[in-house]
Nucleic acid binder design. Sequence first.
DNA 1: CCGCTATTCAACCAAATGGTTGACTCACGC
DNA 2: GCGTGAGTCAACCATTTGGTTGAATAGCGG
Lengths: 113, 113
Amino acid sequence: MVELNDPNLDAVFHALSDPTRREMLRALSEGERTVTELAEPFSMSLAAASKHVKALENAGLLCREIRGRTHICRLDPGPLASAQQWLAVYARFWTPRLDALERLLREEDDAKP
Amino acid sequence: MVELNDPNLDAVFHALSDPTRREMLRALSEGERTVTELAEPFSMSLAAASKHVKALENAGLLCREIRGRTHICRLDPGPLASAQQWLAVYARFWTPRLDALERLLREEDDAKP
DNA sequence: CCGCTATTCAACCAAATGGTTGACTCACGC
DNA sequence: GCGTGAGTCAACCATTTGGTTGAATAGCGG
């Protein structure tokens, strides 16, 4: 079970609260990206984009492999799953049909110790 | 379909990034609360707590009914559903079993125009 | 070795955040 | 009408955030 006060949720949700970082995640969902590639769509300095990448990394949403002088970033979905699980608790409020999700996640937890 | 660049996602995820506000949401998930009641668990001034309540309200997560001198707050799950939908796009990365969620949400959209 | 490329680091800045306190508004009950 | 309770507002403060620029580190290709 995800610890609902997980201090990491702070970092994850904060990371997600910025449209630049959300767009970076979207790019990463299509595959590996270097820092420069992640920065490219935005009209900001590379240094600024690099800070966003670091924010994503601190939240555990991104891991990087340093190969030579380029940093290859890939999505780490784990923390997104935590966020999803946190939200799942409230899913019953907008539609009872999503109770299914909660059950699904619970099964998941029961399955692997 | 939820607009994935919804500027509201900024406010929603930002609201969720604070443990005080998450705890307030948890309290609200049990039923209506006044501002004072929401503030009670925290060792901060009422004014500070009131700001957190306003942050939740700005994110659309909470709506209040002013009855006399007390403000009665209740959870508005709509924006949580938007957040959930945003996350759902990434669900396939942590487990294919959750593809079900995406389909579920899509059905939802197709159902009501 | 040299120059270019990828990236971070450090210093700086303006604006936003999260907290405080004190004054204010307004409703309730005696 | 008066005191008290619920809540907001305004001013203030320290810290964080998100951006800048310029210098530093370090790998690649000639």
